[in-house]
Simulated assay, not measured.
Amino acid sequence: MKFTDTHTHLYSESFDEDQSEMIQRATDAGVNRFFIPAIDSTYTGRMYALEKAYPEKIYLMAGLHPTHVKENYEEELSHVAQQFATRDFYAVGEIGIDLYWDKSSLSIQQDAFKRQIKLAKEYKKPIVIHCREAFDEVFEVLESEKGEDLYGIFHCFTGSKEQAQQAISYNMKLGIGGVATFKNGKIDQFLNEIDLNHIVLETDSPYLSPVPFRGKRNESSYLVLVAEKLATIYQKPLDVIARVTSKNADEVFFKRPA
Protein backbone atom coordinates (compact mmCIF):
# COMPACT_ATOMS: atom_id res chain seq x y z
CA MET A 1 0.00 0.00 0.00
CA LYS A 2 1.21 3.48 -0.88
CA PHE A 3 -0.03 6.57 0.92
CA THR A 4 0.32 10.26 0.06
CA ASP A 5 0.82 12.88 2.76
CA THR A 6 -0.59 15.97 1.07
CA HIS A 7 0.48 18.37 3.82
CA THR A 8 3.57 17.97 6.00
CA HIS A 9 6.16 20.47 7.24
CA LEU A 10 9.13 18.10 7.08
CA TYR A 11 11.54 21.07 7.11
CA SER A 12 10.32 22.15 10.57
CA GLU A 13 12.86 22.72 13.31
CA SER A 14 10.96 20.04 15.22
CA PHE A 15 12.67 17.47 13.00
CA ASP A 16 16.20 18.87 13.14
CA GLU A 17 17.44 16.02 15.33
CA ASP A 18 15.93 13.10 13.42
CA GLN A 19 14.66 14.24 10.03
CA SER A 20 16.14 11.35 8.05
CA GLU A 21 14.97 8.74 10.54
CA MET A 22 11.49 10.25 10.62
CA ILE A 23 11.25 10.19 6.81
CA GLN A 24 12.48 6.58 6.82
CA ARG A 25 9.78 5.61 9.34
CA ALA A 26 7.17 7.15 7.06
CA THR A 27 8.59 5.35 4.03
CA ASP A 28 8.58 2.05 5.92
CA ALA A 29 4.91 2.66 6.79
CA GLY A 30 4.06 3.07 3.10
CA VAL A 31 3.99 6.87 2.89
CA ASN A 32 5.99 7.47 -0.28
CA ARG A 33 5.05 11.04 -1.30
CA PHE A 34 5.26 14.20 0.76
CA PHE A 35 3.71 17.49 -0.37
CA ILE A 36 5.38 20.37 1.43
CA PRO A 37 3.54 23.66 2.12
CA ALA A 38 5.41 26.92 2.54
CA ILE A 39 5.18 29.37 5.44
CA ASP A 40 7.30 32.39 4.50
CA SER A 41 10.65 33.30 2.94
CA THR A 42 12.64 32.33 6.04
CA TYR A 43 11.92 28.65 5.33
CA THR A 44 12.67 28.64 1.60
CA GLY A 45 16.24 27.47 2.01
CA ARG A 46 15.21 24.62 4.30
CA MET A 47 12.55 23.52 1.81
CA TYR A 48 15.03 23.48 -1.08
CA ALA A 49 17.52 21.49 1.00
CA LEU A 50 14.82 18.93 1.79
CA GLU A 51 13.95 18.61 -1.89
CA LYS A 52 17.61 18.14 -2.80
CA ALA A 53 18.01 15.40 -0.19
CA TYR A 54 14.87 13.49 -1.24
CA PRO A 55 14.15 14.42 -4.86
CA GLU A 56 11.98 11.34 -5.51
CA LYS A 57 9.70 11.93 -2.52
CA ILE A 58 9.38 15.69 -1.98
CA TYR A 59 6.89 17.94 -3.80
CA LEU A 60 7.19 21.62 -2.91
CA MET A 61 4.59 24.38 -2.76
CA ALA A 62 5.25 28.12 -2.52
CA GLY A 63 3.11 30.63 -0.68
CA LEU A 64 2.67 32.92 2.31
CA HIS A 65 0.94 31.40 5.35
CA PRO A 66 -1.84 33.66 6.70
CA THR A 67 -0.36 33.85 10.22
CA HIS A 68 2.79 35.25 8.61
CA VAL A 69 0.97 38.01 6.76
CA LYS A 70 2.55 40.96 8.57
CA GLU A 71 3.62 44.52 7.78
CA ASN A 72 6.16 43.17 5.27
CA TYR A 73 3.64 41.03 3.39
CA GLU A 74 4.19 42.89 0.11
CA GLU A 75 7.83 41.87 0.23
CA GLU A 76 6.85 38.29 1.08
CA LEU A 77 4.36 38.11 -1.80
CA SER A 78 7.08 39.37 -4.13
CA HIS A 79 9.26 36.51 -2.91
CA VAL A 80 6.51 34.00 -3.71
CA ALA A 81 6.00 35.46 -7.18
CA GLN A 82 9.76 35.48 -7.81
CA GLN A 83 9.99 31.79 -6.91
CA PHE A 84 7.25 30.89 -9.38
CA ALA A 85 8.99 32.92 -12.05
CA THR A 86 12.19 30.92 -11.67
CA ARG A 87 11.04 27.32 -11.12
CA ASP A 88 8.05 24.99 -10.90
CA PHE A 89 5.95 24.18 -7.84
CA TYR A 90 3.02 21.84 -7.29
CA ALA A 91 0.68 24.34 -5.61
CA VAL A 92 0.32 27.77 -4.08
CA GLY A 93 0.09 27.10 -0.39
CA GLU A 94 -0.54 27.22 2.29
CA ILE A 95 -2.62 30.35 1.95
CA GLY A 96 -5.89 31.57 3.43
CA ILE A 97 -7.20 33.33 6.52
CA ASP A 98 -6.53 32.68 10.22
CA LEU A 99 -8.49 34.69 12.77
CA TYR A 100 -7.54 32.57 15.78
CA TRP A 101 -4.40 34.52 16.62
CA ASP A 102 -5.02 37.96 15.14
CA LYS A 103 -8.27 39.47 13.88
CA SER A 104 -6.71 42.90 13.30
CA SER A 105 -4.84 41.68 10.20
CA LEU A 106 -7.98 40.46 8.40
CA SER A 107 -7.82 43.02 5.60
CA ILE A 108 -4.21 42.28 4.65
CA GLN A 109 -4.84 38.53 5.02
CA GLN A 110 -7.72 38.86 2.55
CA ASP A 111 -5.53 40.82 0.16
CA ALA A 112 -2.70 38.27 0.36
CA PHE A 113 -5.16 35.40 -0.11
CA LYS A 114 -6.75 36.94 -3.21
CA ARG A 115 -3.43 37.85 -4.79
CA GLN A 116 -2.04 34.36 -4.27
CA ILE A 117 -5.17 32.83 -5.79
CA LYS A 118 -4.58 35.00 -8.85
CA LEU A 119 -0.97 33.77 -8.93
CA ALA A 120 -2.23 30.18 -8.86
CA LYS A 121 -4.56 30.89 -11.75
CA GLU A 122 -1.74 32.54 -13.70
CA TYR A 123 0.41 29.42 -13.37
CA LYS A 124 -2.54 26.99 -13.57
CA LYS A 125 -1.80 25.56 -10.14
CA PRO A 126 -4.01 24.40 -7.26
CA ILE A 127 -4.24 26.28 -3.98
CA VAL A 128 -3.93 24.76 -0.52
CA ILE A 129 -6.12 26.64 1.95
CA HIS A 130 -5.47 27.28 5.63
CA CYS A 131 -8.65 28.28 7.45
CA ARG A 132 -8.91 28.77 11.19
CA GLU A 133 -11.98 30.39 12.72
CA ALA A 134 -12.54 32.02 9.32
CA PHE A 135 -14.91 29.87 7.26
CA ASP A 136 -17.17 32.78 6.31
CA GLU A 137 -14.22 34.96 5.34
CA VAL A 138 -12.54 32.22 3.31
CA PHE A 139 -15.76 31.31 1.53
CA GLU A 140 -16.34 34.98 0.68
CA VAL A 141 -13.01 35.09 -1.13
CA LEU A 142 -13.59 31.74 -2.85
CA GLU A 143 -17.01 32.90 -4.02
CA SER A 144 -15.44 35.96 -5.63
CA GLU A 145 -12.78 33.83 -7.35
CA LYS A 146 -14.77 30.70 -8.23
CA GLY A 147 -14.44 29.10 -11.64
CA GLU A 148 -12.88 26.16 -13.44
CA ASP A 149 -9.44 27.65 -12.82
CA LEU A 150 -9.96 27.64 -9.04
CA TYR A 151 -9.26 24.26 -7.43
CA GLY A 152 -7.18 22.69 -4.69
CA ILE A 153 -7.33 21.39 -1.14
CA PHE A 154 -9.10 22.72 1.94
CA HIS A 155 -6.31 21.78 4.33
CA CYS A 156 -7.07 20.47 7.84
CA PHE A 157 -10.81 20.54 7.29
CA THR A 158 -12.63 20.86 10.64
CA GLY A 159 -15.98 22.30 9.62
CA SER A 160 -19.56 21.04 9.41
CA LYS A 161 -21.13 18.85 6.75
CA GLU A 162 -22.60 21.97 5.13
CA GLN A 163 -19.21 23.69 5.11
CA ALA A 164 -17.67 20.55 3.62
CA GLN A 165 -20.20 20.60 0.81
CA GLN A 166 -19.58 24.30 0.24
CA ALA A 167 -15.81 23.76 0.05
CA ILE A 168 -16.31 20.92 -2.43
CA SER A 169 -18.53 23.21 -4.54
CA TYR A 170 -15.44 25.39 -5.12
CA ASN A 171 -13.51 22.41 -6.57
CA MET A 172 -11.73 21.72 -3.30
CA LYS A 173 -10.75 18.34 -1.89
CA LEU A 174 -10.94 18.05 1.89
CA GLY A 175 -7.62 17.48 3.65
CA ILE A 176 -8.29 15.06 6.50
CA GLY A 177 -5.73 14.50 9.25
CA GLY A 178 -5.43 13.78 12.94
CA VAL A 179 -8.59 15.71 13.89
CA ALA A 180 -10.64 12.84 12.43
CA THR A 181 -9.35 10.65 15.28
CA PHE A 182 -10.24 13.10 18.08
CA LYS A 183 -13.24 12.33 20.29
CA ASN A 184 -14.36 15.95 19.96
CA GLY A 185 -13.27 16.31 16.33
CA LYS A 186 -16.88 15.95 15.09
CA ILE A 187 -16.02 15.47 11.43
CA ASP A 188 -16.09 11.68 11.90
CA GLN A 189 -19.84 12.01 12.54
CA PHE A 190 -20.67 12.99 8.95
CA LEU A 191 -17.59 12.19 6.88
CA ASN A 192 -19.11 8.95 5.57
CA GLU A 193 -21.76 11.10 3.89
CA ILE A 194 -19.03 12.83 1.85
CA ASP A 195 -17.89 10.83 -1.18
CA LEU A 196 -14.38 9.44 -0.66
CA ASN A 197 -13.42 10.93 -4.04
CA HIS A 198 -13.39 14.34 -2.33
CA ILE A 199 -10.91 13.32 0.39
CA VAL A 200 -7.11 13.49 0.63
CA LEU A 201 -4.93 12.44 3.57
CA GLU A 202 -2.56 14.72 5.45
CA THR A 203 -0.69 14.92 8.73
CA ASP A 204 0.22 18.63 9.03
CA SER A 205 3.21 17.30 10.93
CA PRO A 206 4.67 18.29 13.32
CA TYR A 207 1.20 19.51 14.38
CA LEU A 208 -2.13 17.78 15.13
CA SER A 209 -0.98 14.27 15.92
CA PRO A 210 -3.70 11.62 15.68
CA VAL A 211 -4.78 9.51 18.63
CA PRO A 212 -2.94 7.85 20.42
CA PHE A 213 -0.19 10.46 19.91
CA ARG A 214 -2.36 13.52 20.43
CA GLY A 215 -0.42 16.29 22.14
CA LYS A 216 2.93 14.93 20.98
CA ARG A 217 4.97 15.74 17.89
CA ASN A 218 3.27 14.53 14.73
CA GLU A 219 5.14 12.83 11.89
CA SER A 220 4.24 11.52 8.46
CA SER A 221 4.30 7.84 9.47
CA TYR A 222 1.20 8.57 11.55
CA LEU A 223 -0.72 9.15 8.32
CA VAL A 224 -1.56 5.45 8.41
CA LEU A 225 -3.50 6.01 11.66
CA VAL A 226 -5.63 8.61 9.88
CA ALA A 227 -6.17 6.19 6.98
CA GLU A 228 -7.21 3.45 9.41
CA LYS A 229 -9.75 5.81 10.95
CA LEU A 230 -11.16 6.58 7.49
CA ALA A 231 -11.32 2.85 6.73
CA THR A 232 -13.57 2.51 9.78
CA ILE A 233 -15.66 5.57 8.93
CA TYR A 234 -16.18 4.53 5.30
CA GLN A 235 -16.31 0.80 6.01
CA LYS A 236 -13.73 0.15 3.29
CA PRO A 237 -10.47 -1.81 3.26
CA LEU A 238 -7.34 0.16 4.10
CA ASP A 239 -5.87 -0.43 0.64
CA VAL A 240 -8.93 1.22 -0.93
CA ILE A 241 -8.44 4.29 1.30
CA ALA A 242 -4.78 4.43 0.26
CA ARG A 243 -5.50 4.05 -3.44
CA VAL A 244 -8.45 6.44 -3.69
CA THR A 245 -6.95 9.22 -1.58
CA SER A 246 -3.66 9.03 -3.52
CA LYS A 247 -5.61 9.19 -6.78
CA ASN A 248 -7.43 12.24 -5.44
CA ALA A 249 -4.08 13.87 -4.64
CA ASP A 250 -2.95 13.17 -8.21
CA GLU A 251 -6.06 14.91 -9.53
CA VAL A 252 -5.14 18.05 -7.59
CA PHE A 253 -1.36 18.27 -7.92
CA PHE A 254 -0.91 16.79 -11.39
CA LYS A 255 -3.96 18.25 -13.09
CA ARG A 256 -3.28 18.97 -16.74
CA PRO A 257 -4.05 22.62 -17.56
CA ALA A 258 -6.81 23.09 -20.13
Results as ranks from 00 to 15, higher is better:
101 W>Y: 12
102 D>Y: 11
102 D>C: 09
103 K>N: 14
104 S>K: 11
107 S>V: 15
108 I>T: 14
108 I>D: 11
109 Q>W: 03
109 Q>M: 04
111 D>E: 14
112 A>W: 00
113 F>L: 09
113 F>H: 02
113 F>R: 04
114 K>Y: 13
115 R>C: 10
115 R>P: 11
116 Q>I: 10
116 Q>E: 10
117 I>D: 00
118 K>D: 15
118 K>H: 15
119 L>H: 03
119 L>I: 06
120 A>Q: 02
120 A>W: 08
120 A>Y: 05
120 A>P: 04
121 K>T: 06
121 K>S: 01
122 E>Y: 13
123 Y>K: 10
124 K>Q: 10
124 K>F: 15
125 K>I: 05
126 P>D: 03
126 P>W: 00
126 P>I: 01
128 V>S: 11
129 I>Y: 05
129 I>H: 02
130 H>W: 14
131 C>M: 04
133 E>R: 14
133 E>W: 13
133 E>N: 14
134 A>V: 07
135 F>W: 10
135 F>H: 14
136 D>M: 11
136 D>T: 14
138 V>E: 03
138 V>D: 04
139 F>V: 10
139 F>D: 11
139 F>Y: 09
141 V>H: 10
141 V>W: 09
141 V>T: 08
142 L>M: 08
143 E>A: 13
144 S>M: 10
145 E>Y: 05
145 E>F: 08
145 E>R: 09
147 G>Q: 02
148 E>V: 15
148 E>Y: 10
148 E>S: 15
150 L>E: 02
151 Y>H: 09
151 Y>F: 12
151 Y>T: 06
153 I>M: 07
155 H>G: 03
155 H>S: 10
155 H>E: 00
158 T>H: 08
159 G>I: 01
160 S>E: 12
160 S>T: 15
160 S>V: 13
161 K>A: 13
162 E>Q: 14
162 E>L: 15
164 A>S: 02
165 Q>R: 12
166 Q>E: 15
168 I>G: 08
168 I>M: 06
171 N>E: 01
173 K>L: 08
174 L>F: 01
175 G>T: 06
177 G>I: 04
177 G>N: 03
178 G>Q: 00
181 T>H: 00
181 T>L: 02
182 F>Q: 02
183 K>H: 11
184 N>E: 06
184 N>Q: 12
184 N>L: 11
185 G>I: 01
186 K>N: 12
187 I>W: 09
188 D>N: 12
189 Q>P: 13
190 F>S: 05
190 F>Y: 01
190 F>N: 02
191 L>G: 01
192 N>I: 15
193 E>C: 07
194 I>D: 00
195 D>K: 03
195 D>Q: 09
197 N>M: 13
197 N>K: 12
197 N>G: 15
198 H>Y: 13
199 I>S: 00
200 V>T: 11
201 L>H: 07
202 E>K: 08
202 E>G: 09
202 E>S: 07
203 T>N: 10
203 T>H: 04
205 S>E: 03
206 P>E: 13
206 P>N: 09
207 Y>Q: 05
207 Y>V: 07
207 Y>R: 08
207 Y>T: 06
209 S>E: 14
211 V>P: 05
212 P>T: 08
213 F>M: 11
213 F>K: 13
214 R>C: 04
215 G>M: 00
